[in-house]
Computed example of a mutant assay.
Amino acid sequence: MHVKIGDVVARKSYQLDLLFRVIDLKTTASGEQIAILYGNEFRLIADAICDDLVVVDENEKNSRKQKEKEIIDQSYYLFRQDYQLLREKQEYYATSSYSHNEEFFHIPGRVLHVDGDPLYLQKCLSLYEKIGVPVNGVHVSETEMPQKIIELLDKYRPDILVVTGHDAYSKQKGNIDDLNAYRHSKHFVQTVLNARNKVPNLDQLVIFAGACQSHFESLIRAGANFASSPSRVNIHALDPVYIVAKISFTPFVERINVWDVLRNTLTREKGLGGVETKGVLRTGMPYRKHHNQ
């Protein structure tokens, strides 16, 4: 079957488990055509012989999209429940448990989301907006992230930094502990190291780093608060959003229990992990409404 750049495909050898976008085509010395693939919903990069690929029709795409939407809606529902509880608790503390009519304002943590994939970045930005997290999103290829991160931190001065894109572990390149056996883990690690050199305190800049199958331990050692992927599994495109939204809306006087953060994500503890971290939300009062004259 003729495969072209932009097609949505699945791999026969993997029982058509995941959908991918074809982002590039290469021909080997022996004349075999190889497709470079980006996961459609998961932050995975892969390559496959074109003969192993099936181009997915609109019906199949729509049916998978519908299943996907149900999973995302469930996560979003759980997140909203959590957020409601956080707000109620905040207001109780802010008024020292007395009832009165002053209104509050909340200043959630500002996010800088640096993503190697422009389509995933757009999906994430839509979800941040839906949840109400203040965010700046920048598309930077994974290999350029280490060089560009300081300039971006200076420009946006975020409370939370997300460094993500595509990654993959390849058995052919080395064992699971070898950073060189991963497509982009070393770039993510260097980006985190550079960011931590600038802001050493784990509570002053909260960092989420990694993508599908990324080298979790190296990212945590480099200074990330949260990272993927402890069991080297694929992580969902939107998982970083749920993690940082929880941090953004948790008061700065509270510690975040790692499990509380992971349980609303789509991949949970196999795909994501982290260290105890303080929230970054601040509450103020009184809130003055501006009346139009």
Rank of each mutant, 00 (worst) to 15 (best):
D24C: 05
Q213W: 11
I150S: 09
V55L: 05
Y14F: 13
L281H: 04
I235D: 07
Y182M: 05
E269N: 06
I243Y: 06
I49V: 11
L19E: 00
P230N: 09
N59R: 12
R282W: 10
F42V: 06
Q204E: 15
L193D: 02
D51H: 01
T28Y: 14
E269R: 02
G210R: 03
T265L: 02
L281V: 04
P230W: 04
I235F: 10
G271L: 02
S97Y: 03
I256D: 04
E41D: 14
S185R: 06
Y120I: 11
E276W: 09
R255C: 04
Q172N: 13
K186G: 03
S185T: 15
K246W: 07
L202F: 06
T28F: 15
L161W: 00
D115W: 03
H290A: 04
G223M: 03
E142W: 08
V261I: 03
E129P: 00
H139V: 07
L119C: 05
L152H: 05
I220Q: 05
N40I: 03
I72L: 10
L205D: 10
I160H: 04
F79L: 11
S141T: 15
E276Q: 12
Y14T: 14
K89N: 13
K173S: 08
A94D: 05
K186F: 04
F208E: 00
S13Y: 09
K61C: 07
P146N: 11
V9P: 08
Y287H: 02
A224T: 06
D239T: 08
F105V: 13
E91G: 10
G273F: 08
D17A: 14
H184T: 02
D57I: 11
R157W: 13
I36C: 01
D73V: 11
Y38P: 00
E254I: 03
F20L: 01
F105M: 14
V206I: 14
I247V: 15
Y83R: 15
S218G: 10
M1V: 15
K148L: 15
I247K: 04
E70Q: 10
K246E: 08
F20H: 06
H106G: 10
D117T: 14
K61Q: 15
L238P: 01
L16S: 07
H290D: 08
Q204W: 07
L127V: 03
D17E: 15
S126W: 05
E151Y: 00
G31P: 09
I247T: 07
R288D: 07
V199P: 00
N62S: 14
E144H: 09
V8G: 02
L86W: 02
K69N: 05
K4D: 01
S13Q: 10
D239G: 01
D57P: 05
Q84E: 12
P240S: 03
I23G: 07
V241W: 02
V241E: 07
A209Q: 01
L127N: 00
T27P: 11
E68V: 04
A227T: 00
V192L: 13
E91Y: 14
G223T: 02
E102Q: 08
D57V: 10
Q66A: 11
L161T: 01
R110H: 11
L125D: 06
C212R: 04
N180Q: 06
A245E: 08
L53K: 00
C124L: 03
T267E: 05
V114R: 12
R80M: 15
F249I: 04
Y182D: 06
Y287R: 08
R288Y: 13
I107Q: 08
F208C: 01
R64F: 08
V3Y: 00
V138A: 09
L161N: 00
L152A: 02
